[in-house]
Amino acid sequence: MTSNQPIIETQNLSIWYGEKKAVNSVSMKLFKNRVSAIIGPSGCGKSTVLRMLNRMNDFIEVLRHEGKILINGQDIYNKKLDPVDLRRKVGMVFQRPNPFPKSIYKNIIWGPKVNGLKYEPDFLVEDSLKKAALWDEVKDRLHSSALALSGGQQQRLCIARTIAMNPEVILMDEPCSALDPRATSKIEELITTLRDEYTIAIVTHNMQQASRISDVTHFFYEGELIETGLTESLFTKPTEKRTEDYITGRFG
């Protein structure tokens, strides 16, 4: 199942916030058209690692890293590589829904527009919203403010907005943590349909969620990648003691 080439690979990735080491020598592979879940207790470095993958951590001045991150074999921290090009290929959905304070329609086309991509706006809006399972709910009010949508709808709009850029990879940083159970299950359903077209990495503190939607699970603990495995086997027969303790709820 995971025999093909990884689309993203970190090699001995260590990350410091100032003097404090947050991530220690993580080597992790994410495979094409798979949903990879990254789980672990709060402060284990899982979000930090995720945000390295599209260089969102560039804006944190005190953060520095060692080790390599490769996307399709290319080092993304290579000085010649433009982080903006990277972010076009690797989209991100955040913990709290953060649509732009504009209309639904403009939220979708903003990315392609500022990137100077060629697109047919009406088609792009309909297509992206359909893929994000939001079209039926908003097709009659495309030009009203995105902020009027419910939290779950806003989060699906953020996913639609990311899809509109046609990325290879979508990173999701606890996308359901601010949502109620119904909105959460809609997003989970959506994620399982998106795996055919995209590679998805999702950070979550919700283990049931990881077991429901992911193909592969990476367990992080205190800045280290403890265990990686097919989700089914990791949750049923973990090889590491700490993984077992965590998934059985002994801590975290």
Binding site: F94, G111, M165
Partner: peptide
């Protein structure tokens, strides 16, 4: 809010685009 800047950067916007738009 910083989340707005992050959203814009994540869409592949350049800094001047984030600031102006």
């Amino acid at each position: 809010p910083n989340s707005l800047r992050e959203a814009a950067y994540a869409m592949g916007a350049r800094k001047w685009q984030v600031v102006i738009f």
